[in-house]
Nucleic acid binder design. Structure first.
Length: 782
DNA sequence: CAGTCCTTGCCGGCC
DNA sequence: GCAAGGACTG
């Protein structure tokens, strides 16, 4: 921005900035006026409302650079919080690059959780923990809760541990300790939620463990009850920056407000339209109330978009306009018009995957006057991870290289978690959860009964499970071959524990010894399932990953917080990921499949949160569309397999919200007598029908007409053309009617639920089936 | 106690 | 369609 000269740069700049004016600030020239204002308003509260693709990360990192470069703050005086490790890494990298590698690290740039771990280790004793506490992941958490539920004599089938975990997480996100849970929540989990929460916290304390929610909750508790400690950190962290502020939950919000309470030098960046984590406690309200909490705050809007074409922005804007209570931003761009957003409907989910696969190959070559795109330039963004399968299957078939982002993470794999349980037990022998995990892995002949004995002895003596096991062996309480194996395990573990102090032995070698001598490696070597080699490979990788750490303990700490797929494999590949994982990313060409009501917007979200749920789904749609730079392709299918059953789908309500003038409707391949499965079965009238449907996809009234016409599926299933299934039979079934199903045979209708029937089959028993696949028994043509 | 069959419930994303 | 968990059997 050459229109800004030096004197402009000093407007509103701090004294210290003036003092450092001698230093060049070339980085400021890269910014537009709004970004520059956000960077230079160093003192006092600042709220940066930054739309998608408006250079928010740039503004944020430049702000850090400016703080450092002007000498306003030293690296360790800046607290910069992000949500993901990826964002933290990126920010670190960009600060370093702009500054010319000069920073000696930013110790307080990281995720909420990683920063809280650091703080909590220093003050653990204030919440009755030791500073070497372990951090439970979701798996451990569920197992622990299950034990508590069973111990309370509650049927854990009707009241699953997962549900309780959800309730407790929710409370923690709102910064409610067991004593603070409001009376209105008392009914949670069959009225026993609060009591179980209390027990859970006691148990965590006994285990010297915390869960993710505790990291923040404990710190908020400490800050609230120890003014001196809070004051110390308020002085220490002189400047606070927060990324993705719209995603903060109440606990995070309180934490920030406490820390910023003195100087109020807090800069929050967010976009209320991209708030997509309400389900995990994020409060858009935090961004909406910023000006109330920090009176006199500078509010800066970044609205110039540097990412997408006008058509894409207009389509996204049209969708998000349906939400109420927005802060309101209007994105604009100087980019050339480009392609309209492309919309296409398909017969079913498999065909959608097939078409996208082909389209990707075509776009690689350059098609329809578009430029050629590399595979790295293209991404498929799905609503739910199970949608990925169809694409993986298809891409494997046609040999199209792809990468799944955010799939099953390395550290969540069974073999890795097992191996880490061994490491944990070696480092901290009282880690009961780790003990439970590996005591019979590999098989040592220690089943339920033996484990109960160990539990009992440990409890009676008030010792850890491992010590309890040692006692059990001494007392001869465990019989048979299990006794010897258990004895060996106990001895081995203490031996490995002593070896951690051995200076001649690297922790990598120790890790290998543990995995070998415990028989764990051998277990997988003897396993003949196809996954076994991959698991051994992963174990090798695990040992390799240890290299970057000083000892096993340091590694375990890292792993509990860094759960993302680090392995950035090389090579040109199409990316497949969820919409949630895509936030913050951008691609020249984006595919958005599965825009069908129930899938997107997700039924679950609507059931749980009603209109609020739909609005959050709409923001997710907005995030999806705004990931695209040049080409955005939205698609839906008329039929989709859900839980292995075919279901007819209605196009998403969001499709109706796309402004017509920015959308181009593509023709489904079937219209050309398509070479696949259609097998010439489609007659002329079928073609006309599909063509007619294709032409009205873009009419905003189309969906409404469809719904008025009843629950008519987008198109009849292909099977109706050639098989015994009579499409006309959809309409009416009556209770008690005798019907025929191709797979299950004859049966009687015992329930009707929309388009699904409950049928008591003579051979197959009671099943729920889609009405379309059932005919009246008399209609069977053989 | 481990392996196999069968039933059941489920598929929302992250630190 | 799949994985987890229970019942049953060797």
């Amino acid at each position: 921005m050459s229109s800004f000269d030096e004197s402009d740069a000093f407007e509103g700049a701090s004294l210290s900035a003036r003092a450092m004016a001698a230093r060049p600030m070339p980085y400021l020239d890269d910014l537009n006026p709004e970004q520059r204002a956000a960077v230079e308003a160093l003192e006092g509260p600042v709220l940066m409302l930054a739309g998608a693709g408006t250079g928010k990360t740039k503004a944020l990192t430049t702000r850090i650079v400016h703080l450092l470069n002007t000498g306003t703050a030293r690296p360790n005086e800046i607290l910069a919080v992000t949500f993901t490790n990826k964002a933290a890494r990126e920010m670190k990298m960009r600060v370093g690059r702009t500054l010319g590698e000069a920073i000696e690290g930013m110790p307080w740039l990281g995720t909420f959780h990683s920063i809280c771990v650091k703080l909590l280790r220093r003050h653990a004793e204030l919440v009755d923990l030791k500073s070497n506490f372990t951090i439970l992941d979701t798996d451990d958490q569920i197992r622990l809760l299950k034990q508590l539920i069973r111990a309370a004599g509650i049927d854990d089938k009707r009241w699953p541990a997962r549900a309780l975990a959800g309730v407790i997480d929710n409370w923690k996100n709102r910064a409610w300790t067991p004593d603070n849970v409001p009376a209105g929540e008392a009914g949670a989990f069959d009225g026993k939620g609060v009591a179980l929460y209390k027990q859970y916290q006691i148990r965590l304390r006994e285990l010297n463990a915390v869960d993710f929610g505790d990291l923040l909750l404990h710190m908020v508790t400490i800050f609230q009850s120890h003014e001196d400690i809070l004051a110390q950190y308020q002085r220490w962290f002189r400047y606070i920056l927060v990324d993705e502020y719209q995603d903060t939950n109440v606990a995070q919000y309180l934490w920030l407000r406490l820390l910023a309470g003195g100087h109020k030098n807090i800069c929050c960046v967010g976009d209320d339209d991209q708030s997509i984590y309400g389900w995990r406690g994020a409060e858009v309200g935090n961004i909406l109330r910023f000006e109330k909490d920090f009176p006199g705050a500078t509010v800066i809007r970044l609205e110039q978009n540097y990412r997408s074409t006008p058509h894409i922005l207009a389509a996204a804007g049209g969708v998000i306009a349906g939400n109420k209570g927005r802060l309101g931003k209007e994105l604009w761009t100087e980019a050339p018009e480009g392609e309209k957003v492309r919309l296409i409907g398909h017969w079913d989910g498999e065909e959608e995957a097939r078409w996208i696969g082909e389209e990707i190959e075509a776009m690689q070559r350059g098609t329809r006057g578009m430029r050629a795109f590399g595979l790295d330039d293209m991404a498929i963004l799905v609503r739910a991870s199970h949608q990925m399968r169809a694409f993986e299957d298809r891409f494997l078939t046609i040999g199209l290289p792809y990468r799944v982002i955010g799939g099953p993470r390395f550290y969540e794999r069974m073999e890795i978690r097992d191996a880490m349980a061994y490491f944990r037990l070696v480092v901290s022998p009282s880690d009961d959860l780790a003990f439970e995990r590996i005591v019979n892995t590999p098989k040592r002949g220690l089943g339920d009964k033996a484990q109960q004995t160990i539990q009992r002895i440990a409890r009676e003596n008030g010792v850890s499970l491992l010590d309890g096991a040692a006692l059990a062996v001494e007392q001869g309480a465990i019989k048979g071959k299990g006794a010897a194996a258990l004895g060996k395990l106990v001895v081995d573990l203490s031996r490995w524990g002593r070896m951690t102090g051995d200076a001649d032995l690297s922790h990598m070698e120790l890790a290998e010894i543990i995995l070998d001598e415990s028989g764990y490696t051998e277990m997988w070597q003897n396993d003949k399932t196809p996954e076994a080699p991959g698991r051994l490979e992963n174990l090798k990788e695990l040992v390799k990953a240890l290299e970057q750490f000083e000892n096993l303990g340091g590694f375990l700490e890292h792993v509990s917080l860094i759960m993302d797929n680090e392995s950035e494999e090389q090579g040109e590949k199409v990316s497949i990921m969820t919409l949630h994982a895509a936030k913050g990313l951008e691609f020249p060409a984006v595919f958005l499949p599965g825009w069908e009501d129930g899938l997107f917007p997700s039924q679950r979200s609507m059931d749980e949160s009603g209109l609020k749920g739909v609005e959050e789904e709409r923001r997710l749609a907005y995030v999806g569309i705004t990931r695209a730079e040049e080409i955005c392709t939205i698609s839906f299918a008329g039929n989709r397999r859900v839980y292995g059953q075919w279901q007819s789908q209605m196009p998403s309500r969001f499709i109706d919200e796309l402004p017509e003038e920015h959308v181009e409707v593509l023709t489904p391949p079937d219209l050309y007598g398509g070479g696949y499965g259609a097998a010439g079965g489609m007659g002329q009238s079928g073609l006309e029908q599909m063509a007619a449907e294709a032409n009205v996809y873009n009419s905003p009234g189309w969906r409404r007409m469809q719904s008025r016409a009843g629950e008519r599926p987008l198109s009849q299933p292909r099977e109706s053309k050639s098989s015994v299934i009579d499409a006309q039979a959809i309409s009416s079934h009556t209770m008690g009617e005798r019907v025929f199903h191709q797979k299950f045979g004859y049966g009687a209708v015992i329930g009707i639920e929309g388009d699904k029937l409950e049928i008591d089959f003579e051979k197959a028993g009671v099943k729920k089936v889609v009405a379309r696949f059932v005919t009246g028994a008399d209609d069977v043509p053989f």
